[in-house]
């Protein structure tokens, strides 16, 4: 795995500086659709220019380079400890190079040592699979959008949301309303229905590994995804909450079993500066190909 340090550094650089192609297409479509000569259209133009500039200059799309989340699919026997050590070094080097902001703060002392490495930073999610390939996906999730994530416990009397898919719809749309402006819109929702408080949020974030143009294989969830996307875009919240035609670029929902007493709906929000890239590694740890 001699090639691993360079591969991870390159993965971090590209994830910070380049928007995935499916997200880029969705932003361009939203720009086309926006009412002309409005501050919403101007916002989209600046967003589009920013995407181009970041790629061209190989610099962060957004200064908040976020929580660093690694998702690794690997075969049994893969050295996860060694991978994590190398990844931490790559994160520190990427920070020195300005691909990442000095973004990790000791929650007790308030100190920021500038390495981006510490308890819980970066985060690793390893999954074994019965295949030889090692796939590494990286998500950089900014704090503004993380802060507008929400977890609802159903039933919610206040929102008249019961323990069914209509109740889920109500709380998810409430989250869209509350997030306006704060999470940089138009955004993407990752949702998990069910699970516990920890797994609900965790699974909601795995939805950001999906492509925006995919469809949910579960018909009920597919319908809910489309419904929420269309309804949210009728609310007039628009980019940055300026008012406008596109409030969300996508909605991705999964479900996990729950215990009878609990019914959580966990919602994570990803801003338009959607940073998600992935690679397949060869036996030497070099990048064999980029994942879509």
């Amino acid at each position: 795995m001699n090639g691993l340090p360079a591969s991870l550094l390159e993965l971090i650089r590209r994830t910070s500086a380049e928007i995935p192609d499916d997200v880029q297409r969705a932003i361009l479509a939203a720009l086309e659709k926006e009412k002309k000569n409005t501050i919403a259209e101007d916002a989209f133009k600046i967003i589009q220019k920013n995407i181009e500039l970041a790629k061209q200059k190989s610099q962060p799309i957004c200064q908040d380079t976020g929580s660093v989340l690694f998702y690794v699919d690997c075969p049994p026997g893969f050295d996860q400890i060694g991978f994590a050590e190398t990844a931490r070094e790559a994160v520190t080097l990427a920070t020195r190079k300005g691909y990442l902001r000095q973004n990790s703060v000791d929650s007790i002392t308030g100190k920021n040592d500038g390495t981006n490495v510490g308890p819980g930073a970066p985060t690793f999610h390893f999954h074994q699979h019965r295949a030889p390939a090692v796939q590494v996906r990286l998500i950089l999730k900014g704090g503004g959008c993380e802060n507008v994530g929400a977890q609802y416990s159903l039933p919610s009397e206040k929102l008249h949301a019961e323990r069914d898919l209509d109740g889920c719809r109500k709380v998810i749309l409430d989250a869209v309303l509350q997030a306006q402006g704060k999470g940089c819109g138009p955004g993407v929702l990752g949702v998990c229905i069910g699970g516990d408080r920890a797994t609900g949020y965790e699974l909601s974030k795995t939805q950001f590994l999906r492509r925006l143009d995919d469809r949910n294989p579960i018909p009920e969830l597919d319908q809910l995804e489309q419904d929420i996307l269309n309804t949210a875009n009728e609310l007039g919240i628009g980019p940055m909450g300026f008012g406008g035609r596109t409030t969300l670029l996508g909605v991705k929902i999964c479900a996990a079993n729950r215990v009878p007493a609990s019914y959580f709906v966990s919602i994570s929000y990803m801003c338009w500066a959607y940073r998600r890239m992935g690679v397949t590694l060869d036996a030497e740890g070099r990048i064999a190909n980029w994942l879509g």
Binding site: A43, I46, I47, K49, N50, L53, A54, K57, Q59, P60, I61, C62, Q63, G142, G144, C184, M240, C271, W272, A273
Partner: peptide, 10 residues
């Protein structure tokens, strides 16, 4: 514009 870190840095 949130997220427009490059345009604004210019």
């Amino acid at each position: 514009i949130g997220g427009a870190a490059q345009v604004l840095a210019e």
